[in-house]
Write a protein that binds this DNA or RNA. Structure first.
Lengths: 198, 198, 198, 198
DNA sequence: AATGAATGAGCATTCATTCAT
DNA sequence: AATGAATGAATGCTCATTCAT
C-alpha cells in the first residue's frame, strides 16, 4: 500500500519534471512521507523509476494482448480495436505514458539492475510480437499483401508512440484538443487499408 | 567558429549522456575550452541545448521542404521521397536526432527564453505544414480520399519519430540492423496506399 | 543473555568495520534481532561501544592482576609472566583488543555517560598501578635501579599496546606470522634487563 | 597554497573529531573555504585524509633517517638521539601524530587508491628498516647481544607509538604534564641497556 | 576574449533513534 | 519484551554559474 502510494506520487513527479528533474524530496512530499521512507521500499531512484515504467509497460502489454486474444473479433476487427486500446492506456495516465515512451530507450536502461532491465525489455518484446502475430495471421489468411509482419508491427507501435509524444509537442503551439483519438484511428485505418489486397 | 565548436562538442555529449547527464564541464572538455568560455557564447545550459535542437530542427525542416518543393516530382513521388529524406537526416547524426525527438516535448521547452521557444515551435509548425500541404494537394487532385491533411501529416511525422526512437529501444534486445530505412519506406508506402482512391 | 548476544555481535561488527563504520543495523543483523531491540538494552551506540570496551578492559585488568598477585612467583618471574598474559588476551580476541587500544583514547571517551567514562578510566588506572607496583617492589628489593615505577609501567603498557597495533599495520606489508608473542617477550626481557642493577 | 591551507584545516579537524567524525563542512569552515572548493584539490575525503597521513609519515621517516645518517654520532649516540627525534615530531603536531598512529592500521588503509596505499606502506617500511639498521650495526660491532634487529626496531617503534597514544589516554585521569619526553628517553635507555653486552 | 578559481544551492542516500503496536 | 515502520538530521559530493584577472 505504501509502495503503491509512493509509486503514484513518483508517477506524477516524474511525468511533470522528468527523471533527472524529479527529486526524491519532491516525490516524498507528494506522497506525504519522509524521503528516507522511500528508501525502505525502493533501493534507489533508478529502481523506483524502473518500477514505474514496468507498471506502465505491463498495462500496455496487457491491453494489447487482450485485444489480440479476443475470440469474438476477426483479424481486421482486432486491428481496428488496437487504437482504442492504445487510447485507453493514454487516457488513464497520459503523463506517465509519455514519460515511459520517452525514457524507454536504451539511454535510460543503462545502470539498472539486470533483472529489471531484462524485465523491461521482455515487455517490449511481448507486445510487439502480439501485434505482429495479428498481421502474420492476416497475411496467412490472404487478407493482406505479404510484408514482414514485425516491420508492420513496428510501424503500428511507432505511430502510436510517435503520436502520443507529438501530441505533447503540438499542445505547445496548436491548442486543438483531442486530435489523438481520431488520429490514432485514422493511422491504423490507413495502414490496414494499405496492407489489404485489392 | 567558437560557437560552432561548442555546439559540436555539446552535440556529442548530449547525445551520449542525455541532457541532465551531460555536464558543462564534459562539453567544455570535448570542445577543448574552459567551462567559463561556454557562458560567453550561451546564456546557460538550457539555451545551449535549445540551440542544438534548433540546428537539428532546421536540417529537418530544410530536408522536408526540399522534397516538397521539387518541381520534377509529382505528388506521389514526393511522398515516396519523404522517407529517404528522413533517413538521410537520421544517418547524418542519429544520436542527436533521437535526442531532439525525445526532448522536443513541452517538458523540455519550459524555461527557455521566449524567442528560442517560439523559434523551435515555428520550425515544428513549418515542416508539419509542408507535409500536410503535400497531402492537401493530393486530395485536391483527386488522388486521395478526403482526410484531414494535417492529421495525415501528423501521422507521417509520428511514424518517423516513433520508428527512430523505437529503433533505439529495439537495439537493446533485437540486434537486427538497418531495419529503419526499409521500415520507413514501408510505412509511407502503406499510408499512401491507404489514402489512395480505388 | 540478550545483552550478551548483542555484545558478542557488536564485538564482531565493531572489530571488522570500526566504530563509525559499524551500523546498528549491522549489529542487529549479526545478533539476529531488530535494531530497535538493541535500544532496550543499550542507551545508544556509544554506550554499547563503551560496554564492549569495558569488557575487554576488565579482561585485561584481570589478567594483569592475576599475574601480579601470584604468590608462587618472585618479582622477576612475575614480570617475565606479563607478556604471556598480554598475549593470551590478544589471542582470545585480537580484533576487539586492537579496537579497544585504538579507541581507548580521550577522543572516543567524550560524550559517554560520566559513570561509564569513569569506569573505563578506573580500569586503566587499575592495571597501570598493578604493573607499577611490581616495579616499585623490585626497586624496594634492590633488584632494579631507581626509576619512577609508573613511568616503567607506562613503558611496558605502551610496548604492549604499540606492538599489537603495529602488528596490524605490518600485516599489510610484511606477512611474517606470529612475531608478536616472541617480540612481546623480547621487549619485556630487554626492559627488565635494562632495569637490573649490575 | 590552497592545498596547504586545506591540509592544515583538515589536520586540526581530523585530529579533534577523528576521520568519520570530521565532516567536509567542518574542514571547509576551518579553512574558510566552501566545501566544494575542497573537492577541487582533493578527490574525496579519503584522499584528503591519506594526503595528511602521508605528510606526517614523511616527517617521521625524515627525522628518523636524519638521526641514523648523522656521521658525527656513534651507534649508541644515535640510538639515544631517537627519542628526541620522536619527541620533536610529537611536539610539532601532537594531534595529527596521534591520529596517524591510530589510523595507520590496515582497517583505515582499505579503500584508498593503490598508489597512496603503497606509498603509505613504503614509508612505514622505510623508517622501520632505518631503525633496525642501527641495531644491526650495533650487533655487528659487538656492542649488543644478538637479537633480531627488526624485532628490536619494532619494539622501539611500538614504545614510541604506544607512549604517544597512551599519553592521550592518561591525560583523562592523570593530569601530570610532560611525562612523555622523559618517558621516551627512559624507554630507549632501558632497551639499549638491556641490549648491551655486560 | 578566455579562464582558473570559487561557490551556493542542491541531491541522493544513510543511519541512529523513536514509537505505536 | 520485541519490532516494523518511519523519519530528522546529516553528509559526501556535484555542478551550473560567476567573476577577478
Amino acid at each position: 500500500m505504501r509502495r503503491k502510494a509512493i509509486l503514484d506520487a513518483a508517477k506524477k513527479v516524474f511525468a511533470t519534471k522528468g527523471f533527472a528533474g524529479a527529486t526524491i524530496e519532491n516525490i516524498a512530499e507528494q506522497a506525504e512521507f519522509s524521503p528516507a521512507t522511500i528508501y525502505i521500499y525502493f533501493k534507489n531512484k533508478d529502481e523506483l523509476h524502473a518500477s514505474l515504467s514496468l507498471q506502465m509497460l505491463n498495462i500496455l502489454a496487457q491491453k494489447v494482448e487482450d485485444v489480440c486474444q479476443r475470440k469474438d473479433l476477426g483479424i481486421e476487427e482486432k486491428i481496428k480495436a488496437l487504437p482504442l486500446a492504445f487510447y485507453e492506456v493514454y487516457e488513464r495516465d497520459p503523463l506517465n505514458l509519455m514519460h515511459v515512451l520517452r525514457y524507454q530507450s536504451s539511454e535510460a536502461l543503462k545502470g539498472l539492475s539486470p533483472e529489471v532491465e531484462s524485465e523491461i525489455r521482455n515487455k517490449a518484446r511481448q507486445y510487439i510480437s502480439a501485434i505482429s502475430n495479428l498481421f502474420e495471421e492476416g497475411i496467412r489468411q490472404g487478407l493482406f499483401y505479404k510484408h514482414h509482419p514485425v516491420a508492420v508491427a513496428d510501424i503500428v507501435w511507432a505511430v502510436f508512440a510517435g503520436l502520443v509524444l507529438w501530441e505533447d509537442t503540438k499542445k505547445g503551439f496548436d491548442p486543438q484538443k483531442d486530435f489523438l483519438k481520431s488520429t490514432l484511428e485514422l493511422s491504423v485505418d490507413l495502414i490496414s487499408r494499405g496492407l489489404k489486397k485489392e
